[in-house]
């Protein structure tokens, strides 16, 4: 086989094996439900939180009483905290009983996934936590304030002055 033949064969081989496909990531979508799992009986304590608002990635869901699951919403796959407003022992979500909280875990969904994210005792963090609940970081707190200004939460520096914290 001469040199030309060798290189022609090499070219054919490369074309044969070269994986030329590309991802269609632009169309990627995942499907998420948020569940109010604060009444999970496996926990030592069931805090009486009602989830008044929730947002995950680029989707929002509304009121979730204890045990409720939201409708499935489409999101762009990725990673993020579930941002929420929750009311303590108040299914009506009166602002004086509400606080900004977020999922403790940075939750992930990938393309094509259907996932239910459970918000429960170990998977939440807040501004005036009872003992054992992690404090919410400032960036998450401020994003919740920006998302739902109607609740008139105090700035992060004064987060423990929110009415619910004072109860």
């Amino acid at each position: 086989m001469n040199a030309l033949g060798k290189f022609a064969l090499l070219g054919a081989l490369l074309l044969a094996f070269l994986p030329a496909c590309t991802d269609d990531d632009d169309a990627a979508v995942a499907y998420v439900q948020i569940k109010n799992d604060f009444n999970n009986p496996e926990m030592d304590f069931q805090p009486p939180w009602t989830i008044c608002r929730a947002a995950f990635l680029d989707a929002e869901v509304g009121l979730l009483r204890q045990g409720d699951e939201s409708d499935e919403v489409e999101v762009t796959p990725g990673l993020g905290h579930v941002l929420m407003v929750a009311a303590w022992d108040d299914p009506t979500c009166a602002p004086e009983n509400a606080l900004p909280i977020a999922s403790r875990n940075e939750e992930e969904v990938v393309d094509g996934q259907h996932r239910t994210i459970a918000i429960n005792l170990p998977n939440h963090q807040g501004p005036c936590p009872p003992e054992g609940v992690a404090p919410i970081p400032e960036d998450l707190y401020e994003r919740i304030r920006a998302l739902w200004p109607e609740f008139a939460f105090k700035p992060y520096a004064e987060r423990t002055e929110n009415a619910q914290c004072l109860d």
Binding site: L15, A16, F17, D24, Y31, G112, H114, R115
Partner: peptide, 24 residues
């Protein structure tokens, strides 16, 4: 609590198989 749902169908990516076929 694990919730299992069917995956959304993905578009097929047969390029490797074509490559193999051509090589064969």
């Amino acid at each position: 609590m694990a919730t299992e749902r069917p995956m959304t169908p993905r578009s097929g990516r047969p390029c490797f198989r074509y490559g193999l076929l051509l090589a064969c």
